[in-house]
């Protein structure tokens, strides 16, 4: 089982990867433990997402990269 990520500790500016293989930079963390606001950096499955900001659900986050 993959390590559970504690969203509360993710700082703005951190880079994350998603379970769909995208990467994104956290722009705002409401620290609710459920969501972060992030800007997509790469998105192989849906390239149109790159550059857009969206809310990313905790269970869709695969890893904190930096």
């Amino acid at each position: 089982m993959a390590e559970v990520i504690n969203l509360i500790t993710i700082a703005e500016g951190a880079r994350i990867s998603t379970i769909n293989g995208a990467t994104a930079e956290v722009v705002n963390n409401p620290k609710d433990g459920v969501w972060v606001f992030a800007k997509y950096l790469t998105s192989p499955e849906d390239p149109d997402l790159v550059g857009s900001e969206d809310m990313i659900f905790a269970q869709d986050i695969a890893e904190v990269l930096t």
């Binding site: 705002n28 409401p30 609710d32 433990g33 459920v34 969501w35 809310m55 659900f57």
Partner: peptide
Amino acid sequence: PVFSCPYHGWSFATDGKLAG
């Protein structure tokens, strides 16, 4: 920035709109 429900995760913006 949002009001997030801890049960299933629905999240609402401060203008009330369902955001997540």
